[in-house]
């Protein structure tokens, strides 16, 4: 099964790197959507079928944590898997994110294996197909 993936990061180069890494990690993906902040991401989630979100924390307009809270508040998106991709290494922050419903956390710099492990953990056996 191919996933429709939304990548949320204010850096276009990071979004490109994640797309490249998804290919290297042999993650089956369908449509790739991109957003430069959480507010744009919420609009895309409202209109399109999204299976998985990769999001940064630190973005202008709306950051990843506020975006995550809004996704979880909405009955239609509350179960949508969100993987945070960030440079932050604080275990306290990671625990806070998990308590808010983050599916997995990838710390930068990351390898294709890190990304694949996070997707498989999040999407379960679907990711093995």
């Amino acid at each position: 099964m191919a996933f429709n993936i939304l990548i949320v990061d204010d850096s276009s180069i990071v979004r490109s790197v994640i797309i490249k890494t998804l290919t290297l990690a042999k993650i089956p993906f369908g449509e790739i959507y991109q957003a430069e902040n959480g507010a744009v991401a919420l609009e895309i989630i409202d209109k399109e079928w999204i299976d998985l979100v990769f999001a940064d924390i630190n973005m202008p307009v709306m950051g990843g944590i506020e975006m995550l809270e809004k996704i979880r508040e909405n009955p239609e998106s509350k179960s949508l898997p969100v993987i945070i991709v960030s440079t932050e290494g604080s275990t306290t922050r990671i625990e806070q994110l998990k308590a808010k419903g983050v599916s997995a956390y990838i710390r930068k710099p990351f390898t294709p294996e890190d990304l694949r492990d996070a997707v498989l953990t999040t999407m379960g056996e679907i990711g093995n197909e």
Binding site: P60, S90, P109
Partner: peptide, 22 residues
Amino acid sequence: NIVIGNILTEIAGTEPVFDLTI
């Protein structure tokens, strides 16, 4: 962005939370 995240962990450990600017 990546350098500061990793330097802060090295200097302050993994417990503290830091807010980074863009």
